[in-house]
Design a protein around this nucleic acid. Sequence first.
DNA 1: CAAGGTAGTGAGTCATCACTCACCATGTGC
DNA 2: GCACATGGTGAGTGATGACTCACTACCTTG
Lengths: 181, 181
Amino acid sequence: MTAGERRADVLRAAVAEFAKTGYQGTSTEDVARVAGISQPYLFKMWPTKKALFISLVEHGFERVRQAFVEATGEATGDEALDRMGEAYGELLRDRDELLLQMQSYAACDDPEIGAVTRREFGRLWRQVARLSGLDDERLQQFFAMGMLMNVVASMDATNHPSQWVKACVPPAWLAPPTWDG
Amino acid sequence: MTAGERRADVLRAAVAEFAKTGYQGTSTEDVARVAGISQPYLFKMWPTKKALFISLVEHGFERVRQAFVEATGEATGDEALDRMGEAYGELLRDRDELLLQMQSYAACDDPEIGAVTRREFGRLWRQVARLSGLDDERLQQFFAMGMLMNVVASMDATNHPSQWVKACVPPAWLAPPTWDG
DNA sequence: CAAGGTAGTGAGTCATCACTCACCATGTGC
DNA sequence: GCACATGGTGAGTGATGACTCACTACCTTG
């Protein structure tokens, strides 16, 4: 297998592990085992655990930006924002991406991780601003709802239903287009 | 010093440490050193590191609920929600409380921590519902804004100003009543 | 002052973890 | 058929971390 393919495999495995247990709580041995390679080889691909984590964070934000571009299409304004919101809801189905985002916020005390996370968040903000053309107040509401979705995903609320979950989580988050529920 | 006083001291020290580096990233030695006690004594007060973390989480959510009751006073409806939002903004000044909340969301993969976090989040939701008497949609917007504030606090955005921070963070978050700026 | 409870610690133990070193196997160009 | 890059690992190492054990100093009560 080529190094490029391996790298992609490892990234997929790593995002799942780091999403669950966070930067500090995930061991490089775990990642290597799930990826099906030896742990020393992990360190041939990334010089440190932190470098691996950071490339996951960058990759994750990049995917969100890309999903927003694709979802928006030719739309602008509130229409564009609605479509991006829907696209974000679909990312919820693959919880790992959003969980990893939460883990990167939680790890911001580390200066390098903090710097990358702020930079990526800023890029996402500017892109949504550019795509929608809306004012700061609307953007703020949009991002606020996104952060609530992240938290709900972190708590795995939809798999632990209770009274408040029904109130907090609108059906739209639970029923992306492909469902029939 | 009595055990009760020590316990309060240790909780204060522990919240600062866990807020920074999270459940997995914080060592009991760190907590003990900052609290000014030996590490074995920590284990006489709480049986495990997890038990300490969980009591911090419960304590933190409790404080938010209490702050909301006090802030609301006799108000109801949107007026009540406004006052609670203002109270939450004041909690931002002591970042540690909000960061610890983020750390508890991030640690939800652990079944016990997850259960406690969901329970506390639910209690908070119900309390805001009761105090304000508003419908789910308004509550959702309120909590969404709160989660955005948590994330902004995690990224320490106000101490790393850049273009998007000015747009994302309304002056009200930065200028609680006691400021003069 | 004896007896016992309360507050507190020094010095471990055993597991885990990030990271390294020396090494092997399989092509591929010459 | 050999030099050499590419892809890959077994077996460490030194540090750290959660948790324990055996112990002391001090206070209170009779």
